[in-house]
Each structure stands twice: as structure tokens, then as C-alpha cells.
């Protein structure tokens, strides 16, 4: 039995998506994995879920550098969703950027639980699981 019902990956990198799926399966992270290519696609899909009566995924792995709508723009849109619909959501920013200003900026969002520098490993996923048990 997986820890979470749903995990959501928002990243335009195919290799990352491939690796992430394997790692999530390895640690039995979630029953279901949602994958979006950029921020726009993700916010549209999440809004869609809400309007069809679904809940939002409790964990979102968010990349920052994406075309169309990057991670920051996604965060700005996401916080517009009513609090009660998103209070169970934990967003983990997963980025290759080691620029301190990026980390600081990410932590300013209340919805962001952590900032994790790529490459992501199964150990880091287990830590997230531990925090939620």
C-alpha cells in the first residue's frame, strides 16, 4: 500500500520524468503519478480536477525552469486556488539551480515544503515519506 494516493510531477525534462517514475515506484511513494510538461499544463489540469470534484494531489514535485509557464508562475497561480482545496498539498521544488536566490525565493511560498537540488534520490523520497507518517 503506497504512502500517498497521488504524486504529481511538473517538469519538461523527459529523462527526469523517466527517472522519477522509477524512484517513486521503488519507494512505493504513491498509487498514482500525474506528469505535466510545464506550469501551464499543470495548473490547467489541477483546476480541471477540482472542478470535476477530485482532490488535488497531496505531493507535487515542481521544476522551476520550464517553457510557457515556469515554476514561479505556476506557484503564483497555485496560491490563487482557495485554501481549503489545497491545504493538504505539499509542493517540493526540485531544481538543478544552486542559486541561493532561487532557494530563498521558493521558501517564501507557504505552500512550498522543501527545496531539493537535483539529482533526486530514493533517500530523499524516503525522507519525505518519513515526514508524513
Amino acid at each position: 500500500m503506497a504512502v500517498f494516493q497521488t504524486a504529481c510531477i511538473i517538469d519538461d525534462d523527459q529523462i527526469y520524468q523517466f527517472g522519477m517514475k522509477i524512484l517513486l515506484r521503488e519507494v512505493d511513494f504513491s498509487e498514482e503519478i500525474l506528469i505535466y510538461q510545464d506550469g501551464q499544463e499543470a495548473i490547467d489540469a489541477l483546476q480541471e480536477r477540482l472542478s470535476s470534484g477530485d482532490t488535488l494531489p497531496p505531493v507535487i514535485f515542481l521544476d522551476l525552469n520550464m517553457p510557457i509557464k515556469d515554476g514561479w508562475e505556476f506557484l503564483d497561480d497555485f496560491v490563487q486556488i482557495p485554501q481549503r482545496d489545497r491545504e493538504q498539498v505539499n509542493i517540493y521544488v526540485i531544481s538543478s539551480s544552486i542559486n541561493p536566490s532561487d532557494e530563498d525565493r521558493a521558501r517564501k511560498y507557504e505552500v512550498v515544503s522543501n527545496y531539493i537540488v537535483k539529482p533526486i534520490t530514493s533517500e530523499k523520497l524516503l525522507e519525505i515519506i518519513a515526514q508524513h507518517q
Binding site: 529523462i15 521503488e26 525552469n65 539551480s97 544552486i98 542559486n99 537535483k118 539529482p119
Partner: peptide, 27 residues
């Protein structure tokens, strides 16, 4: 410099991850 660092790191991270998969039995 940050952009370069970001991009180099993202490729490097992918390489690390895939290499790890290849030498393991997770896949």
C-alpha cells in the same frame, strides 16, 4: 553563471540518475 550551472547540473543529474539505474536492478 547560474544559468550555465543550472543547465550543466541538470544534464549531470540526469546522467547520474540513469547511470545509477543501469548499474542497479531497480529497473
Amino acid at each position: 553563471a547560474h544559468i550555465v550551472s543550472h543547465n550543466l547540473r541538470s544534464h549531470a543529474a540526469n546522467l547520474t540518475m540513469i547511470t545509477e539505474f543501469l548499474v542497479s536492478d531497480k529497473i
